[in-house]
Simulated scan of single mutants.
Amino acid sequence: MDHDATLAKVIEIVNETLELGDGVTLDEATDLKQLGADSFDLLELVTTLEDEFSVTFDDDAATNVATVGDVVAAIERARS
């Protein structure tokens, strides 16, 4: 899966997990906490992403993702 496909899937999962609805536009710079994500939401998001992409994030990646772009980068690192 290339970068753009990974980004699109991450955006879809973030929308679903945080129940954002259709009116919210996300990109790589979107800050997850500004979307209202608390620590429980972020944990749920990380778990969902690990399952969806068949990866395991290291502790740093799991706790330091702040933006959608950070999530995509963590997935790409976990795949390599």
Rank of each mutant, 00 (worst) to 15 (best):
T17L: 02
A8I: 02
V14G: 06
E19V: 14
K33S: 09
E16R: 15
L32C: 00
G23I: 12
T6P: 13
K9F: 09
T30L: 05
T30I: 12
V24D: 11
D38I: 04
I13R: 09
T17P: 00
D38T: 02
E16L: 15
A29D: 13
L26T: 07
L20S: 02
V24W: 11
L18F: 14
E12F: 07
L20F: 03
A37G: 01
L26N: 07
T30A: 08
I11D: 05
A29Q: 14
D27P: 03
L26R: 00
L35C: 03
D27M: 11
K9E: 14
G23M: 11
E12W: 05
E28M: 14
T6H: 07
D31Y: 05
G21S: 12
L35A: 02
A29F: 06
L7H: 00
E19C: 05
T30N: 06
A29M: 14
D27R: 00
K9L: 12
E16D: 15
G21C: 13
G36N: 07
A37V: 00
G21V: 12
T25C: 08
G23P: 05
N15T: 09
D22W: 14
L7M: 06
L7V: 09
N15R: 12
D38G: 01
I11E: 09
T6L: 09
D22A: 15
E28G: 13
N15M: 08
E19I: 13
G23S: 15
D27A: 09
E16K: 15
L26Q: 04
K33I: 07
A29V: 11
E16Y: 11
V10C: 04
L26H: 00
I11A: 06
D31H: 10
L20G: 02
A37L: 01
L32S: 04
D38E: 03
G23H: 09
E16T: 15
L32P: 05
D22L: 15
G21W: 09
L18T: 08
L20V: 06
K33G: 02
V14F: 11
A8E: 08
E12L: 13
D22F: 09
G36M: 04
N15C: 04
T25I: 14
E16C: 06
G23A: 12
L32A: 01
